[in-house]
Each structure stands twice: as C-alpha cells, then as structure tokens.
Design a binder for these strands. Sequence first.
DNA 1: TTGTATGATGTAAGCGCTTACATTTTTCTC
DNA 2: GAGAAAAATGTAAGCGCTTACATCATACAA
Lengths: 333, 333
Amino acid sequence: MATIYEVSKLAGVSLATVSRAMNDRSRVSEKTLAKVMAAMEQLNYRPNSIAQSLAANRSNSVGVLVSEIHGPIFGAMLSGIDAELRASGKFTLFATGHSDREKEREGIRFLTSRNCDALILHIEALTDEYLLEHRDESTPFVVINREIAGMENKCVSLDNELGGYEATRYLLQLGHRDIAYISGPMSWGDAAARWAGHKRALESFGVQFDAGLMVEGDYHERGGAKGTTRLLENGQPFTAIVCANDEMAAGAMDAIRAKGLSIPDDISVVGFDNAPLSRYLYPKLTTIDHPATNMGRMAAKWVLHNVYGIEADIQRMFAPTLIERASTAPPSK
Amino acid sequence: MATIYEVSKLAGVSLATVSRAMNDRSRVSEKTLAKVMAAMEQLNYRPNSIAQSLAANRSNSVGVLVSEIHGPIFGAMLSGIDAELRASGKFTLFATGHSDREKEREGIRFLTSRNCDALILHIEALTDEYLLEHRDESTPFVVINREIAGMENKCVSLDNELGGYEATRYLLQLGHRDIAYISGPMSWGDAAARWAGHKRALESFGVQFDAGLMVEGDYHERGGAKGTTRLLENGQPFTAIVCANDEMAAGAMDAIRAKGLSIPDDISVVGFDNAPLSRYLYPKLTTIDHPATNMGRMAAKWVLHNVYGIEADIQRMFAPTLIERASTAPPSK
DNA sequence: TTGTATGATGTAAGCGCTTACATTTTTCTC
DNA sequence: GAGAAAAATGTAAGCGCTTACATCATACAA
C-alpha cells in the first residue's frame, strides 16, 4: 500500500504538502494540487485512516450503543444514524447494551476505549444520575429517546406526553368516553409521559379519569394481554383501549378476541410506536408514529455539529403523529 | 490520559516491558508484572487502541455491511455478530448497503478504508462474480446468508432448499395436494433454492407440479397480495399456499381474506423466515425459522478463527426448522 | 571455573500520518 | 523596483504504541 511518503516523492513535494492537499486544499496552489492528485491516482493511494487518527488525535468514529438491536425501532434508528454519519465520512462503531446496567456501562467503556470522538447512547438501564455525572467527561455524548432533566441539550427525544395525548384525543373525537389504558413500566420516563398525555386528553374533554380503567403493563405482548384480560373481567365497561406501545396492543387484541369481542366494533385499540408489526396486526393497528429514523439522523447531526463543527440545524424534540388504521372506529352505540 | 511511557517510568522498567506485560505476560517475570500492573492501576492507564492499531498493523475491528438494517432479520444478525465479536474484544464497524450495487461497493470501500481486519458482508446487489474476483484481496471477508459457488468456505448460509422442502412437506403431511407457491425474485439464489425445495417435496409425495399454481413474487407484502389474488382468480383451485418469505405471506393473507375466504379453514398459509411480524399476523403464521442470530454469531466466529486465529468450531450451513402456528390446518374436505 | 543455553529486560526504529514553525516564493502597494 | 504582506511549501517533531534485535542476568553442565 502506498504511503504519503511515496506520493510526496513522486509528486516532487514534501509530506506536508501532500497532507495539506488532502485535508485543506485551500492552502495548496492549484498546480501543486494537480501534481499531488496525479501522483495519488497513479499510486492508487489511500490514506491510512488509523495513522490519521493517531496523528490528529481524532478517530472520526462515533460509537453507538443501543439497548437491543432487534427491538422494533432500533433498526430504524441505526439506519438514520448511519446515513447521516457516513455522509460526512464518519465511522459508526456499534455495540449493544442489552438494557442491563452493567452491560451498558461496559459498552460505553468499550466504545470509549476505541477513542470514539463521540457517543450516541440509546440506553435504558443506566440512571439519569449516572449520565449527569459523566456529562462532562472527555468523550461527549448524546442520549437518544430519553429526556434527562439537567442535560436536555444532550438529548434527542420524542414528545411522549403529546403522543399519549394524541392517541386518546383521537378516540375522544371518535366519540369514545370509556377509555382504558395500559401503561408501560411507570418508572420509565417515557411511560409516565405517555400516561400523563392520556390524562390531559381526558381532562381537556371533561372526562373524569377512572382509576379502574388503568393497568400498569411492561411494554411486552404478554403484559398487554394480561392487562386487557384483567380490565375486561373487571366489569368496568369500556369501548376503547390505549396501549403505551404496539407490542402490548398486539397482546390486547389477542385478549379481546379471546373474549369473543371484535375489533374495532366492540372495542377500539390504539398503540404507540408504529413499529413494523403494527401494520401486520389484524385489523391493522391505529398507532402513534415514532420517528425513529429521523431521531437517529438528528442524534448524528448533533454529533456532527457539536463535535466536528459541521453546520446543522438541531431539533431536540420530535412530535409524534397519529397513524389512522383499521383498529379504531366510533363506539357502536 | 496516561501513556505507556509514564507507566514505564513509574514502574521503573522500559516501554517494551510494559507493552509485553499487556500483550504477552509469559515473557515478563512475575515481579515485574506486578510492578507494571500496580503502576497502571495507579495512573488509571488505558492503552490507546488507535496507537496499538497503527503499531501492530491490526485494527481489531471488523466491518459489517448489511443491506437494510431495519429489515426483519438483520437486527438479529447484527446482534449475534456483536455478541461474539465483543466477547473477544473486537470492534464492530457498521455500514449499510441499501441493496444497491454501487452503495454496497462504496460501503465495502468505506469499511476497508478504516483498516478493518475483516469484513462480514450481508449483501444482495453485488454479483457473485464481483465477490469471486475480490476473494483474495487484502481484507478477508465472509458472506452471510448467501451461497456462492467457488467460495463456499467464505459463506455462512441457510439451507434454503431444505427450508422450502420442509414448508411444503408439512402441508403435504397435513393432507394438502393442491399447493400454490409464491416465490421470491428467481434471480436471487435463495429464492431459487426455496422454490427447488418446494418442487422436491411435491415430487417426493408423488404430486404433479402444476405451473398454474406458481407465481414469481418480489419478497414484498404487495407482491404477495397481488400474486395471491392472481392465483385465486385463475380458477385453479388450491387449499394451501407457500410464500417464500413472511412479508409476502402477510400480503397473501390479506388477499385471501379480501376474497372472503378464511385462514386456515379454506386456505392454509406458510411463510418463510420467522420474522418478528409472523407472530403478529392473524392467525399467527406457520413459517420456517431463519436462525439469523446464530448465523451472525457464526460469521463472527469465522472471522475470529480465520483472521485472529482464535479457536472456534465453524459451521457453514444452517438448517432451518418449521415453526407450527395457527395459519395451517388439514384441508377441509 | 568457563561456556552456553535460557529467560528477562532494554534500545531504538518504526507504523503513516498531522501540524507548529521556519523558510521560500509570489503578490501587492506606492 | 524596493519592501512588506500574503501565500505556498518545507522541516521536523511528534501521536502512543509494537517489536526486532541487542544486552544483561541467571542457571546449569562439563
């Protein structure tokens, strides 16, 4: 493999000039630039990116830590990150945190040990406090899909409260008044926010909140099914149910059908995330779209802007939108 | 950040000894090792992995090129790769190829430009010829989910023919004899193999293959729906349909229902891949499991073994298995 | 004792770049 | 056309490691 040294010799210039020709063309005369380019071409020269990193003390790579890559939205997220980063010639280093506190910490260490210039973190187990403590450490990071008080400027997140609001508002507008709700684990920020949005929607329509129509779920299909069964057997009637994510909605649908009820004639169902699966449920699920790809892009842009000084408009907060499909209808009577 | 130099000074030994203490303990006396470790501890020394890469001419990172990360099985695949690679301290560099020939080529160049020690390729657009031409280039690679004649030893793949066989055999065993088939694009190796398996199953049960029951699809939901509609309107009766992947099966289900037929009572449906969506279809889809995670792990092991000399058992070919769910039943009459 | 393996450690030359600073060349001003 | 500013180029010192080779210490055999 040709090195910069050979190029400089062939072009009849110094090392420094070749380096400048690559990194800062403005500081090289046109004639020289042409000579250098020709020499590079002739030798099929490819700069050694590792050597560049060492000399420049910048690795041009950013680490991405994702909780579970096979989850419904991480693929989309990673895809957005990759697109944006690659367009600027930055490498994406990938690692998984498995929603486990120790593994997430270890993942960060691992990525950091490769001298990443920045980190994009999609993590669930590490506490806000931990992140706040490390906010000023040498490797800068953005947190994606999570809102941390005290470091909002390092967060790219979804307006979950608004999403929760929109989901319920849609049902209210259809005419529903008895609306059940299955939340995510309430200790998670997004679950709490979605739930808060639900209550705000009820309030704004003057509907009294009924504690008997709410169950705390776990964001999994099983939890959705169990919660729905419980609500159904409670005796408290309802004509619609909002689930704090699509997987629980899938479970809810099964549970509803298992009771011999039909969707949406007897009960309307709304999910959250617009995960791929939501399009395949029967009937297709009305849900709240999670702009994961765009959020991924934005996290990448944040890094490009804040770490590499590349011009970019940063949008921290994303507004989710309702996707109307077939699992909802006006209440039957 | 402390460097190896400071460690050597504090420990009262030379640079070389510290380096050896890190890389090849056997060549350092116990006493010295202890001193070095103590010094490292005291300085909170972390080796600079970039410098190591440059000096050792090995980057300890492997590039992974995936066609579409948000597709149904790539997440699982990447997850397996990451798990295996990280366990050996190797970094995973990620890039996307978007199933486009030029982008895949560019993705390989991009990854290679970071001096990856090896590449794991999940690509669709680049031709066998291209890969064969580059098989002996400086950066070794494995191809995942694809079987290339002439370089089988660099391929980790699924026995698609067997999968196709199993899918149809299952229906035959249930008693079906009129079995429709929607293939993937026949120019793709896996689509052709699945189709071949289907025909072999028919043969082995002495069922005459009927060209009127086969449609070439595109691996997408729409294609599955359109193909099924066509078959249904053909007039040629059938009691079961095999789709060469789950997305087409989803489309097929919609088309079948649109004709007022029921699944599985009127028509049984079998998919292929066991993608997450298959569990959410209604009724839940009987399908062929694609062991993507294990194949990812295996591709990583291939690299660990062939590039880094780490002991590992390599299995090139994976056998898919049938997952029985609710979309299939014996023919009604 | 001397000689010779053997093992432990040190010396120093890179790996292929970037970049501060020095030097040379060009351009501009009057 | 002299002098100064600006632009282009060169020199050389690293960046933080690995590793071939040299050196030194120790153990053991004859």
